[in-house]
Structures are given as C-alpha cells and as structure tokens.
C-alpha cells in the first residue's frame, strides 16, 4: 500500500508543479513506483512541465465519467521507468469533480504504486479540497516572502482541520546571498513562524527555466543545486536520514559575531 501526498501552497507560482514533477521523477529514479496527478482542472500544466503534453489522451475526468479505465488514463514518462502521469481535464471546471471522486482515484492508485503525488491548484476553494481529499500526507511549498508564507499558514490550518498528517515544508527559491544581505527572510525565520517540519530547502536555481522550456525536470540535470536538493528530499521521503545542508545564510560578519558571543 502506497502513500498519497498532496503538494500544495495556497499562493500560486511558488513551485508546486515544478516540485511535483521533480519529486515524482526523483522518487522513480530511486526505484519507487510513482503516479503524479494533476489536480488543477481547467488549468493543467503538469503534463507540460514533464514534457508529456503530446501523449495525454485521457484525463481524470474521463475516468470519473467512466469513459476509460484508470490504468488506461495513465501516461508513461518518457525517461524514467515506473513513473506515470494522470492529467487533468482542460475543458472542465474545478467544481465538476467532487472530493469523493478524487478520493476514489487515490485509493485505487495507492494500491498499486508506492507514491501518489497530487499537484494541487492554488487557492483554498473546491480545487484545493479535491486535491487534498484523498491525501494521507501533505507537502507545503513556500517561497521566503510575506504573501507565500501567509498563504502557507492558512493552508496548514485547513489541512490540520482535515486531519492530514504529517505536513512537511519545502522552502523553495531560497537565495543564501539575499539572506546574507538581509534582504530575504531566512530559513529559520520561516520555520519559526510556520512551526512545521522542514523536509527540504531548494536554492534559487535559474536552471528551472531551461528545464521547463525543454519539458525535462531539473533532477535529470547533473550538478544543479536545485536537482540535488530535490533528490535529497526524495530520499527523506523514503525514510532515509539525509541532513539538510547549511546554505551559509550567515554573513562573514555574523560568523565573527557568533564566534565572539560563543566565546564570551
């Protein structure tokens, strides 16, 4: 029996789809069987980020309306074994699906796959509730800025009300340089405010743009800091103890100051 994990954020544009694509790919690369599900009905994008848009024939809507079998609607990834995509319908609206129907799909998928990752739409309306309906666990993606953290806080409250646990945090697009200069909220401040468990920090990596252009998830790129961070998260997701590396957020001056206060 596998796990269903919803990847959500509240705010749009913080990296939910990118994270779903990369974590799904990374888990499949370490020999897990994975389905990534696009729950963003009407605004689907996971197929594009995965470079699978030309292969999508059926969507979750076709499964719900019994036009096709669930197994037939799954699109096989082009690069990694054991990785499948269930696309969302582009012609429907989010309230055309009911939570029970999503739950049903998730139940069936987790019987056969180790991981079912649900790419949630932004917002806190029906689409989000559908995405979370079948989830056992959640991963919150946030960027270190006011609006994303505020929305993440709201989403955490909603997920806790639904009894989803654990809820883990991914801090995306952290720039150690900006934190050092005092122009970005630091990892520790985000953690202090949201007070949930951190599962990984993705450094700002411009490689993401090229990877989306090509339709090849970043984890396929060697020596990319973002790819390495996603691989580490995947390993933590399968229970390995992988430390979260320090990004040297402290400036040289802070380090001297810390040294002095330690030796007082």
């Amino acid at each position: 029996m596998g796990k269903v994990i919803v990847i959500t954020s509240g705010k749009g544009g913080v990296g939910k789809t990118t994270s779903t694509a990369n974590l799904g790919t990374a888990l499949a690369m370490i020999e897990k069987t994975v389905v990534i599900v696009d729950a963003d009905v009407g605004l689907r994008n996971l197929d594009v980020v995965m470079g699978l848009e030309s292969r999508v024939v059926y969507t979750s809507m076709d499964v719900i309306e019994k036009r096709c079998e669930l197994s037939k609607a799954l699109v096989k990834d082009r690069r990694v074994e054991n990785l499948m995509l269930l696309a969302a319908s582009q012609r429907n609206r989010k309230d055309d699906i009911r939570p029970e129907q999503m739950q049903d799909i998730c139940e069936k998928l987790k019987e056969e796959y180790d991981f079912v990752l649900i790419d949630s739409p932004a917002g806190i309306e029906q689409g989000f509730h559908n995405a979370a309906a079948g989830a056992d666990e959640a991963i919150i993606v946030t960027t270190p800025d006011l609006s994303a953290i505020r929305d993440a806080d709201r989403i955490i409250g909603l997920l806790q009300n639904e009894g989803i646990e654990p809820i883990n945090l991914v801090i995306n697009r952290l720039s150690a340089t900006l934190v050092r200069k005092g122009n970005m909220i630091s990892k520790n401040d985000v953690l202090d405010i949201l007070n949930i468990d951190l599962i990984g920090v993705i450094p700002e990596d411009t490689g993401v743009i090229a990877s989306t252009n090509r339709g090849v998830p970043l984890v396929h790129t060697d020596r990319s800091p973002g790819a390495e961070a996603y691989m580490r998260i995947a390993r933590r997701m399968i229970g390995q103890r992988v430390p979260i590396p320090d990004m040297r957020e402290d400036s040289f001056l802070d380090q001297i100051a810390n040294w002095f206060s330690r030796n007082k």
Binding site: G182, N183, I185, D189, I193, L253, D254
Partner: peptide, 29 residues
C-alpha cells in the same frame, strides 16, 4: 551593544518582513 549594529546602517528588509508577518499571522490566526 550589538556588535553587528556598528556595521549596519538601516534595519534590514528581512527583519521588517518577519515583524510584519508575525503581526499579519497573529491577526489571521
């Protein structure tokens, strides 16, 4: 006196953000 304050001219935007966020979230919650 904080050693660091000798070298920083104005308050950092990240600490302003953190303070604002604390206040916003207290109201939200």
């Amino acid at each position: 006196m904080d050693f660091r304050s000798l070298f920083t001219r104005k308050s950092k935007s990240s600490s302003i953000a953190t303070q604002r966020l604390q206040l916003i979230l207290t109201q939200d919650r």
